[in-house]
Design a protein around this nucleic acid. Structure first.
Length: 113
DNA sequence: TGGGTGACGAGTC
DNA sequence: CGACTCGCCACCC
């Protein structure tokens, strides 16, 4: 079975609203492992193939599509975001600060920890 | 068991 | 600003 850490990551990713984005670090903070942002990315890598995991809505702290190469194609991630109305230019989400969805601010931590 | 790795982030220069 | 370095932590040989 997947580790509890992975389960928490997936649980948060599943709650990212349509057309919104967040960052690996934000998820890491929310699940109680603020220093494990890299591991969150590792967990997302393992989520490739899970259709209920919107991994394309998770970016790095700058709003850069750093994980696009893990989507099977270099443009798949960008197309998924654009299909949700998220504008992407040069592998970067425009208006990232407005589209940013912070789980530790929008969610109740008590439901996860 | 030990060591390398990476879809990151923060600090420095 | 951008480019570099270092720390972090779960996971895979």
């Amino acid at each position: 079975m997947a580790s509890d850490f992975y389960e928490r990551v997936y649980a948060v990713v599943r709650l990212i609203p349509y057309g919104r984005v967040t960052s690996y670090g934000a998820i890491a903070r929310f699940i109680g492992a603020p220093k494990a942002a890299r591991t969150v990315g590792y967990a997302m890598n393992a989520s490739v193939g899970m259709e209920d995991i919107a991994a394309h809505r998770v970016l790095n702290r700058k709003g850069l599509l750093t994980g696009k190469h893990h989507f099977g194609g270099s443009k798949v991630m960008e197309e998924l975001l654009q299909s949700e109305g998220v504008e992407v230019v040069n592998d970067q989400v425009t208006h990232f600060d407005e589209l940013f969805w912070d789980p530790s601010r929008e969610l109740n931590r008590d439901n996860f920890i």
